[in-house]
Design a protein around this nucleic acid. Structure first.
Length: 553
RNA sequence: UGGGGUGUAGCCAAGGGGUAAGGCACGGGUCUUUGACUCCCGCAUUCGUAGGUUCAAAUCCUGCCACCCCAGCCA
């Protein structure tokens, strides 16, 4: 948790003091997704703020599906949303709700407004209403504004009864047709729509609008703080108008914060959906997607995502955070928690010329040097090994200190070896590296105490397993593919996925399960794919590479 | 020319009259059986801008500029 309280918590602190709006009350928030898509890292920010605020103050946070528009919502998203929230580690207890549970009460409040002369049935069609909306200098108009209360009451009842066509009538709040804030120009609060609702079917043919429904949902649930994103600031006067003009005891307060942006990706539902539908990614859970299910499949931990948001803070500035910062948070978490393993992604054969052909030894290797209780595992060693192509150079570049003829390196946890040459094919490609080992260096330490600069990873050919490795990189080549004046699809990174077949991994990896995460030593953090990994077909996704400060000159 | 917001380093972000926290990125060094990690050092004479008030201004006042949101019977 960040040491400095952000502005929302400062406000709450004030309200909790004696005489404050919430003195003696329990802080109660809510997370209200619309079930029409998958949750992404931006939603996770709201999740952290909503659930995190409740946790911080010893309060509660409700999970509520905001399903007031049957044309967009679907039950299929509900379970996925719950699953993602649970995965992140948040608990809504028994407080799971649907906005649609309150439709009857909302209807009652609408009637109350009509009776008070604060709402009226308007017969303008959408087109007419648009024409009569007015502009900055001209007030809106509605010829039905002064309709008698009884008449509105009757018409509203008949709207509910299904007597009128979709779109032919609305219920409007009577507020201010000349307001500079267009949300206050007699906003529509009910519309007619005969599409079946995902839960209630055809029970209703009229549905409340967000601006009317949301404050009621909050008030009915006893929400003290309704935290939402900046674009709803303009709606706050209407939110307050609703809670102040209907008969509810609790008056929740809406506070807005800036939503999250991240470089090298897009976060709008429309654009994400487009990536899926055009096949540029394999689905909503493609490991390149910023969706929670995508990040999960990629290898991100709930902890790293929560830490990312906690460290970013909360403000009202439209922020675009470096993708590198998300990666940093992941590395930081996985460095402490992920077991190490050896995997050779681009293998080349290494032969220890002076090692007996039929001999095999076993070495103990620590699972995680960062974790004293991490334990050890056993790896086998024999004359022929796999090492990474990048760890050998026949003619070393400046400052290169791995394997090259005449140079010594340490094979992690095994022996110190000295390169004696290599074999090449007719095209000059290295096919095999030759070395001799120091028989006095078992475990990796030299008998005479001489320092060995480089340590490289390796896998025994006798026990190595084949694996498919999916190397992921950022989805877009530019920082801001989301800018209004560019077509984001033009900047999809053609190299965002590289599939490597025939990588060689240590035998212990046969026992791992989908979603197990590892640091492949000196390479990066990898995660067993949660869809395609099987014991017979090992598939690992690269979550993030290790930092690499080696810069060839 | 309306209403609502926001401007502190390349990116986040504290600080709200007493002389610019912290993190990421970046550069250098240290350590190292991972060129990772750790640790250390460096990185805003200045807070969108111009004035004003004050012994003292990122903080208070005034003007200006830039950017974001708003004219769905979407949320």
């Amino acid at each position: 948790m960040a040491e400095n309280k952000h502005f929302i918590h400062e406000i709450i602190d004030e309200e909790l003091k004696e005489g404050g709006r919430c003195y003696g009350k329990k802080v109660h928030t809510r997370f209200p997704p619309e079930p029409n898509g998958y949750l992404h890292i931006g939603h996770a920010k709201a999740l952290e703020i909503d659930f995190g605020t409740a946790e911080l103050y010893g309060g509660l946070c409700n999970l509520r599906m905001d399903d007031t528009n049957p044309t967009k919502e679907d039950e299929e998203y509900v379970e996925a949303i719950k699953e993602d929230i649970k995965w992140l580690g948040h608990d809504w207890g028994d407080r799971f709700f649907y906005a649609s549970e309150y439709f009857e009460q909302m209807y009652g409040f609408a009637v109350e407004l009509i009776e008070k002369g604060l709402a009226y049935v308007c017969e303008l069609t959408p087109e007419q209403m648009k024409e009569m909306r007015g502009d900055i200098n001209t007030p809106a108009q509605s010829p039905f504004r002064d309709r008698p209360i009884e008449e509105s009451l009757d018409l509203f009842k008949r709207m509910r009864a299904g007597e009128f066509e979709d779109g032919s009538m609305t219920l409007r709040a009577k507020i201010d047709l000349a307001s500079g804030n267009f949300n206050m120009r007699d906003p529509v609060i009910y519309r007619i729509n005969r599409l079946p609702h995902h839960r209630l079917g055809t029970t209703w043919c009229i549905y409340p609008m967000y601006d009317f429904a949301h404050p009621i949902e909050d008030a009915l649930e006893g929400i003290t703080h309704s935290l939402c994103s900046l674009e709803f600031e303009n709606h706050r006067p209407l939110y307050d108008w609703v809670v102040n003009n209907i008969s509810v005891e609790t008056k929740p307060r809406q506070i807005e914060f800036a939503r999250l942006g991240i470089t090298h990706t897009v976060l709008s539902k429309r654009k994400l959906r487009n990536l899926v539908e055009t096949g540029l990614v394999s689905g909503w859970d493609d490991p390149r997607m910023p969706t929670l299910c995508g990040l999960r499949r990629r290898g991100y931990t709930p902890n790293s995502i929560r830490e990312f948001h906690a460290r970013n803070g909360v403000s009202k500035v439209n922020a675009v955070v470096d993708f590198a910062f998300l990666e940093y948070c992941l590395r930081e978490d996985l460095n402490k928690t992920a077991n190490r393993a050896m995997a050779v992604i681009n293998p080349v054969k290494l032969v220890i010329d002076n090692y007996p052909e039929d001999m095999t030894e076993e070495f103990e290797v620590e699972n995680n040097p960062e974790d004293p209780n991490g334990g050890t595992r056993t790896v086998s060693f024999s004359r022929e090994l796999w090492i990474d192509k990048e760890d050998f150079m026949e003619e070393p570049a400046k400052k290169y200190f791995r394997l090259y003829p005449g140079n010594e390196v340490r094979l992690k946890s095994a022996y110190v070896i000295k390169c004696v040459g290599c074999d090449k094919d007719e095209n000059g490609n290295v096919t095999c590296v030759h070395a001799t080992y120091d028989t006095e260096s078992r475990g990796g330490n030299t008998a005479d105490g001489r320092k060995i600069k480089a340590t490289i990873h390796w896998v025994d050919q006798k026990t190595a397993l084949d694996a498919e490795i999916r190397l992921y990189d950022r989805l877009f080549t530019v920082e801001a593919p989301d800018l209004a004046d560019v077509n984001y699809l033009d900047f999809v990174n053609p190299d965002s996925l590289t599939v490597v077949q025939g990588a060689k991994v240590e035998a212990s990896l046969a026992n791992c399960k989908p979603e197990d995460r590892f640091q492949f030593l000196r390479v990066g953090y990898f995660c067993a794919d949660n869809k395609d990994f099987t014991p017979d077909h090992l598939v690992f996704n690269r979550a993030v590479s290790l930092k690499d400060s080696y810069k060839p000159e």
